[in-house]
Design a binder for these strands. Structure first.
Lengths: 191, 191
DNA sequence: GACAGAAACTAATATAATTAGTATTTTCCC
DNA sequence: GGGAAAATACTAATTATATTAGTTTCTGTC
């Protein structure tokens, strides 16, 4: 049994790669093991089963998304920040069709998970706060922006947009509408 | 073997019920069969396996959602229609946490599926067209509205909103922002 | 009442996750 | 360097699930 040099990181990376390259077929432990040149039970030396593995894949994806989003809004504000954030968000979703959806399913009670999720939401909140939103309005706005970006990303990658109209153009339109909408609510909220 | 009087409809209904009442645990054929007082293989007399069953569950859910949405916008227009539509949409998603997500995953190439999906989108398009949108703008707006409603529904039911701020209030805020945003784009698009 | 088809069943097979137990390799301590 | 301890990968076996094959029983029709 020549040792292959497996690590938890490599197992997680293999699972993520499988998810993103073959989003259709689910990544079984058997496939992941074959990908790594190993038999299925060997994975248990590095990972506590498929559920735990998927949790790790999710955490990793959330952290990478958080980094991308943080970078996108850095040094920007207002509409500029929103467009950059939205662009980065969508690019991530397109590049990672299999792991992206995992970044938006919460695990209530999982502290480590909640921390990462909070870090991913932070850039959204940051630029909205910079736009003058506070209190409940800030929360509402953040949820609105996240909902729009998430919904579009899912519908776009799951082929939910049937017509022959450019998806990228629709995304631009959506971001502009959200920008205008949130701005309008901001004005409305502060007399 | 006393005959139980199973039909495809009853199998589909049982699967849907299981999905909506226990959204966590996946609805296996074994569970569905037990629910119906029958052994697993008996289901194959009415349904072509679990994939085909899930397709039928999806179709059924899409059709019910389409009916609800159609009814909600009937006799309304403009913001009034949007608020009614959004309310109906969210009520459906909350009432059917397990089957709702199935209504928004497309099956390219499945004609029957595409027809039902189109019927569910129709009410959105209808009220937007009534608001004066046409051509690509109409498509963009419909995608924007669907994205926002879908994204919010998913994030809300998957506990993606961590903070203690009222989810319903956020939804109201989102719909108002979308209303303002789409209206703004409409004005911008027609000089 | 007989029969054709449908419905439900038991038995068996295939895939996937998981656990137990074993052998080998690596690490670490002296 | 040598040997104990830990880690790694393995085979074998167990469980859960979907699926198929083949059998039995019911049910409606003539």
């Amino acid at each position: 049994m020549p040792r292959v040099g497996l690590t938890q990181e490599r197992v997680v990376a293999a699972a993520a790669r499988l998810l993103d390259t073959h989003p259709a077929s689910q990544p079984t432990l058997g496939r992941i093991a074959r990908e790594l040149g190993v038999k299925t039970p060997s994975l248990y030396n590095h990972v506590d089963g498929i559920d735990a593995l998927m949790r790790l894949v999710s955490l990793d994806a959330i952290d990478r998304l958080a980094d991308v989003l943080r970078g996108s809004v850095m040094g920007r504000s207002g509409s500029d920040a929103l467009f950059a954030l939205a662009d980065a968000y969508r690019k991530f979703a397109v590049a990672h069709p299999g792991t992206y959806p995992l970044t938006q399913v919460a695990r209530p009670g999982d502290v480590r998970f909640e921390e990462s999720a909070a870090r991913a939401v932070e850039p959204v909140v940051a630029f909205l706060a910079g736009s003058g939103l506070t209190g409940d309005d800030l929360v509402h706005a953040a949820r609105t922006v996240r909902s729009a970006l998430h919904g579009f990303s899912l519908l776009a990658t799951s082929a939910g947009f049937a017509l022959d109209v450019e998806v990228d153009a629709s995304f631009e339109w959506l971001v502009a509408a959200i920008d205008a909408g949130v701005r309008g609510m901001t004005v409305a909220a502060r007399p």
